[in-house]
Design a protein around this nucleic acid. Structure first.
Lengths: 184, 184, 184, 184
DNA sequence: CATGAATGAGGATTCATTCAT
DNA sequence: AATGAATGAATCCTCATTCAT
């Protein structure tokens, strides 16, 4: 049941964006009565939150899986493969990505995303801190913040804005960006 | 009068975010009757649009001014000074930045922002294309896209998320990021 | 519920005319929340339309019933009885009659009325066409148009304007009008 | 000035009907400021009232003029010529006729029309009362009421509904209607 | 007189939420 | 648990009218 509601919520979000996201529409899409929504969710915002949480979780798991395959391998290949996995994950559902990134009201909604970003940053910082041969930046935490955010944002914007770069070009540039940075 | 309304609109946006932005609230904040709004603006969206347009214009002008002071100077100093100006511009009103970046419904609103970003990218591409001594990347347009987006996003996130980086650190990292990238 | 709303709509229409007919007033008169109106009617106009449709239907049914009782009987008695039934039907609710006839915005509202009038005309034309002994006019369709409209309008005006004619006088004059016409 | 306003009022009424008739629209059409309206008219309704009064006056004068030309002539020709004049008068501006007849809110608006109808009825009653050779009906006042209303309404409906009758047919039927009635 | 900016009550409509069944 | 009718506050917007200039 929760399943049906969350899926319906995702659908509505994807199909028409957040400004037409109403509890009635979600209930209709889930083929459930409006009242039933409130047996599983305290309010409208929490439905959105769960949709977003799931999306963030799925995405981060996809990236984490790719990463764990390559974790032993240092250097450019790892950056490229990770970015590749991130792109692939984001390309699964650009419409939902757009809604999550550009349309959602703040609040509890972004909590999960922020949390994941922090985790990733900490992982990256630990990683960089332990490998001075590939990271010449003095502050590993700062470098991780820069690196993670830059890659994430470039990936998102590339998926959403479809600029004049091929996917391979993008990956090349990302590798150059990170490599150049960490070694300077 | 237009002034009062726009200022009230900005205030409401800043104080409570877009989801409480109602014409009545704007009218009250401007100490004006709801009807008067409609003598100067065709609808609610256009009030938001003007607030955003102004904000984007002011911000880009501040950055453009800083840039024009340093335009003759190649290299790291220029990156740093531009990023510095951008940070300063964004720090003027973080709350409004948050609303513009994260809460506004799509549409005409993002049009102005997108447009400015395109202009900046074109400028940067031209600049990079003409200076092979500081730019070793093969595709100037791609490099400009990467560079502009990375800097913009890092600046915005730093202002909004207040991470554990000092302002100077951030600027150092940005310079390293761009320099390392362009020369690799 | 629909019942309550329609009845409240009729009441508001009758008591204060169309220009004070607001959804809020109807809701209040029905002792129902404004929102409930929209679970049964798509908009304000459709509430009016239902009130009018009902009124037109009731009225035409009353007349049709009277007519079917007398349909075998030719001549003056039939005219008189039909007119009598029409008067009785219109006298049920003169205030609503006034609103329907004189105040309602055009559109779907008049559609139903026009439709009924056409039906009646066609019936009358067929009737007249088949009975040359009581109808000497050359064009049965034209005669039906004249006859139906004249009787309808005289009945309505008599009910609304309360002129110096007794009900019986009116019926006498109507019979004379139609009889004289059809035989000339 | 009053002239300009009334003419603008008539225009608005004719072009878009009563439901778009707003003081602002009238002011704009008259190329006058909204405030100026209130120097010559106490409120919106009184503008409508004057437009209607004028229309009724013009129309009745046209008919009266035709009638005074034929006043000496008894019988069918007079009915025909009068009806002809009425039709011609109504055909001048069917759009305004529709608005006046079908769309206007009640009240002071219809006062002038009612008044004219009464005058005409009294004239007709006096006329019929004095000419027993053409009027066999026992009650001249009643006969006048019937006759005037029937002709008026048939003329109006013919102009507004454009039924399947030629103008000449209509006049023939009207003459037959009245003649048959008065002699029966 | 004329203006027209300003007013603000009121309009139609939506939708998150509740609650009796 | 599930329903879905009912709610009613809140939304955007209009327009007859006023009044300072």
């Amino acid at each position: 049941m929760v399943e049906r509601i969350v899926e319906a919520g995702r659908q509505v979000l994807v199909e028409d964006g957040y400004d037409t996201f109403s509890t009635n529409r979600v209930a209709a899409a889930a083929d459930v009565s409006p009242g039933s929504l409130y047996q599983y969710f305290p309010d409208k915002a929490s439905i959105v939150a769960v949709v977003v949480d799931r999306y963030v979780d799925e995405t981060s798991e996809l990236v984490a899986a790719a990463l764990s395959d390559r974790i032993t391998e240092l250097g450019p290949a790892m950056v490229r493969d990770t970015a590749d996995a991130l792109l692939a994950a984001l390309e699964r559902d650009p419409a939902l990505l757009r809604v999550v990134y550009e349309e959602l009201p703040l609040g509890r909604t972004h909590a999960r995303l922020t949390q994941v970003e922090r985790q990733v940053r900490h992982l990256a910082a630990a990683y960089l801190g332990a490998r001075p041969e590939i990271n010449h930046r003095p502050d590993a935490a700062a470098a991780a913040w820069i690196m993670v955010l830059a890659i994430e944002n470039l990936a998102v914007r590339w998926v959403l804005d479809r600029p004049d770069l091929t996917r391979d070009q993008l990956l090349d540039e990302m590798v150059a960006l990170i490599a150049g940075y960490l070694l300077s």
